[in-house]
Amino acid sequence: MTESAAATPPKGPAFYFPSIEKKYGRPIAEWQELIRASPLTKHSELVTWLKTEHGLGHGHANALVAHTLKEDAAGS
């Protein structure tokens, strides 16, 4: 990996991941497991659920849901 590639900050939802892990004390993989285990499937429902049940802020919840659903769609 080149030095400039290593210095390139993450873009999109992943930009929030370091602050999510720091603020809420759980790794991203654990949040993704919770999202995938939820009976909810719609983006907005999952965001609201993370906010109300787990105390996440809107931006952090939105980033986690967007990234997780995109990964799942790519894997199907």
Rank of each mutant, 00 (worst) to 15 (best):
R36T: 06
H58G: 09
I28Q: 04
P18L: 08
L40Y: 14
W31V: 14
G12R: 00
R26W: 12
N62Y: 08
P27N: 04
A61C: 03
H60G: 01
P10Q: 04
H43Y: 08
G57F: 02
H43C: 07
Y16K: 02
T48P: 14
Y16G: 06
D72W: 01
A73Y: 06
A7K: 14
H60F: 11
T48M: 09
K42N: 15
Y16P: 11
A66T: 14
P13K: 00
H60T: 08
L69N: 02
S76D: 13
Q32G: 02
L46S: 08
G59Q: 05
H58S: 11
I35G: 02
Y16M: 10
A7Q: 15
E33P: 00
L50S: 02
V65Q: 01
P13V: 00
W49S: 11
S4I: 09
P9E: 09
P9M: 12
A73L: 11
G12H: 03
L69I: 03
G75I: 03
E33N: 13
A63H: 12
A14W: 05
G12Q: 02
T68F: 00
K42P: 12
I28G: 00
T52H: 13
K42T: 15
Y16T: 06
E45D: 15
R26D: 08
L46N: 03
I35P: 00
W31M: 06
A74R: 06
V47D: 12
I20M: 05
H67Y: 15
R36Q: 14
A7V: 04
Y24R: 01
H67S: 15
L50N: 01
T41Q: 14
R36M: 12
S19N: 08
S4N: 07
G57E: 10
E53H: 09
A66L: 05
G75F: 05
I28Y: 05
G12I: 02
H58P: 09
S44Q: 12
A6R: 11
A29F: 03
T2W: 02
H43F: 09
Y24E: 11
E21N: 05
K23T: 14
I35W: 10
K11S: 14
G59M: 03
